[in-house]
Design a protein around this nucleic acid. Structure first.
Lengths: 225, 225
DNA sequence: TAAGAATTAAAACGCTTGTTTGAAAAAACA
DNA sequence: TGTTTTTTCAAACAAGCGTTTTAATTCTTA
């Protein structure tokens, strides 16, 4: 197995890729514990032993799947943030601008994956309430750096606010975002069909607005907008 | 077993109550799938067969536990809402007033249970991202009626807003609330100890403010406050 | 094409799960 | 008290889990 990695730089990816895809879908539907290697194998039309062969263990499989799905989103966030800063001559950004760079990348990915049978929104949302410990650790690793960056950015926009105040409301903003994603599937039920869960763009825009206003006006003495 | 219920109006509740408590604790820590009847029995210092004897099945046990914990909160919400309306001579309430009745009752319960080893915040939050189907159904049953009531109330406050608009932002508000509760445990990590997760009151107040402003200013043409 | 490496496949392993069983103990009642 | 009901207990059940093993197959490459 080690030889595989070292000697063959281009292993046959088909089965591996199918396993990842099946894992993503089943994880987003049933969570970590509800996902079994047997169900993954069936979904991916692969053998039961394939997951252990390609990834070593169930944990490693799930971790790799999460890495592949989440990493690009975070990267896109940082890209957008840099873009905005450049377009703004490196002056402090507006709250709305900032949160748009945080929220839009995930909206894009959701739209992309809308045709596939796996909802990315559900997947991301799962990772943040998943009780399994090693997933909690991963979630922390992935998001704490992002949180740091956005905290710094918001501090520039609200220079008079103490760090604690920024932290609190960033926490609420992120929680809103994840909560909205997690609940998104239920929106249609909840509103008796009045709001369609497929309107991803509408959701993202409303969410960005909601979060920006909640953040700004929630602050003790909100200075700029 | 049926005879139990019919013939004995005051059955020995001790074991039963211990089972419920253990279930609450373990569910909030590990979710539905991570909770096993063996771990419940151990935690409750009861026999493995006790859960099946008293409740019939694991599902029934968990459902009963959720009912006992969530029902009082919803009841308190309606109480507070009625109080506010009476104090306001039945005029339309302010957004902040409305959301306070939605959010505070859960804060009260969290504070109450803070001494016990089970975090109610975590428990409630679990129910709304739990992948298990029968819990999803329960969650829907419990919260859709509450949603209806608050939608009506908010419609009175914002008479010019279409129902859809109200639904969208109520959805976002509820998602924020649940997301914040779910993430609450991670707040301390996330902020490097700057914000203490034990400050429940602070959290509840900030959350109420955040949600009220997000709701109001997110609306297309927000009329009153 | 032949040799070697990478992948697939089927079967079994030990372990944990929810549930059931039947007897023992405790409680309730007359 | 003696009898009946309720509750506890230990043991076992089948089913499902992640993982390992060993052999067959496919692919690569010299």
């Amino acid at each position: 197995m080690i030889a595989t990695v070292i000697k063959n730089p281009k292993p046959k990816l088909e089965t591996r890729a199918r396993l990842i895809e099946a894992t993503a879908r089943l994880f987003s539907l049933h969570g970590y514990n509800g996902l079994t290697l047997r169900s993954v194998a069936k979904e991916a039309k692969a053998n039961l032993a394939a997951a252990n062969y390609h990834f070593g263990s169930k944990d490693a499989l799930v971790l790799e799947m999460l890495r592949e799905r989440i990493q690009p989103i975070n990267q896109r966030r940082l890209e957008l943030l840099e873009e905005e800063k450049n377009n703004n001559s490196n002056l402090p950004l507006g709250v709305f601008q900032i949160f748009r760079t945080l929220i839009h990348p995930i909206g894009e990915e959701i739209s992309k994956s809308a045709n596939s049978r796996c909802s990315l929104a559900q997947l991301v949302a799962r990772t943040f309430t998943e009780p399994t410990e090693f997933i909690e650790r991963m979630h922390h690793r992935f998001f704490s750096q992002i949180a740091e960056i956005y905290h710094r950015e918001l501090s520039l926009t609200f220079p008079n606010q103490p760090a604690k105040e920024i932290y609190w409301h960033l926490h609420l903003a992120v929680a809103s975002m994840l909560g909205a994603l997690a609940q998104h599937r239920r929106l249609e039920d909840f509103t008796k069909g009045m709001c369609n869960e497929n309107q991803v763009d509408e959701m993202i825009n409303r969410l960005t607005k909601f979060v920006s206003h909640g953040f700004t006006h929630g602050l003790r003495n909100s200075s700029p907008s």
